[in-house]
């Protein structure tokens, strides 16, 4: 009993060391998203294209897609652009843009200059839809499955490594699941 007491400081040190060791590798800048495995919040917003017609969730792709929060003021978005452009050229996955707290003319100019990787651009100039998405600054990127459920969220810049190691594995998995369910349902109907 007396010997055990002697070791109390050692145990206390080890406990503290474990907590602090974990703390070293915790990134408090990226908040865990509460929206994973929940449906993409509903919206009814303009697009960046000409005309004032509104789009909603039903206008989104019927397959897994990437939803990218961007703005012309956002420097990291400029870094992401070539990656998204090559994804579009290769037809890897549709990318839907949410133009977050930006001005239409600036956003259009940005796309003209840098290239437009987006299949569609939803305008969220007030940032209200961003609140529903739990966004706190561009760029943020969601991966949404064919049923419109959010499966993954990446906060901050997507570089080539993040694209290859984080984004594409999730996209491929969702795409193969979608292909399997699509062939199953077509098999049933025929």
């Amino acid at each position: 009993m007396k010997n055990l007491k002697l070791y109390i400081p050692v145990f206390a040190f080890l406990l503290l060391a474990v907590f602090m060791w974990r703390g070293l590798y915790m990134d408090s800048r990226t908040l865990p998203s509460t929206l994973i495995d929940r449906e993409l919040p509903e919206f009814e917003l303009r697009t960046l294209g000409e005309g004032d017609q509104l789009v909603s969730n039903t206008d989104l792709p019927d397959e897994p897609f990437i939803l990218n929060i961007w703005g012309s003021y956002c420097l990291p978005c400029l870094q992401e652009n070539p990656i998204f452009m090559s994804a579009r050229e290769q037809g890897l996955v549709p990318i839907v843009g949410v133009n977050y707290k930006d001005r239409d003319n600036l956003a259009r100019d940005w796309l003209d200059i840098n290239g437009n990787p987006f299949t569609m651009n939803i305008v969220d100039d007030s940032g209200r839809y961003g609140i529903d998405l739990g966004v706190y600054g561009a760029p943020e990127t969601f991966i949404v499955d064919a049923d419109g459920v959010i499966r993954y969220k990446h906060i901050g810049t997507i570089n080539y490594q993040a694209w290859e190691d984080e984004i594409m594995p999730v996209v491929r998995e969702l795409q193969s699941a979608h292909a399997a369910s699509a062939s199953a349902s077509s098999g049933q109907s025929s």
């Binding site: 707290k101 940032g127 209200r128 961003g130 609140i131 966004v135 706190y136 600054g137």
Partner: peptide
């Protein structure tokens, strides 16, 4: 002073 903070205050 963050942009999202202003949005959330308005919300």
């Amino acid at each position: 002073t963050g942009g999202v903070a202003a949005d959330l205050r308005r919300e």
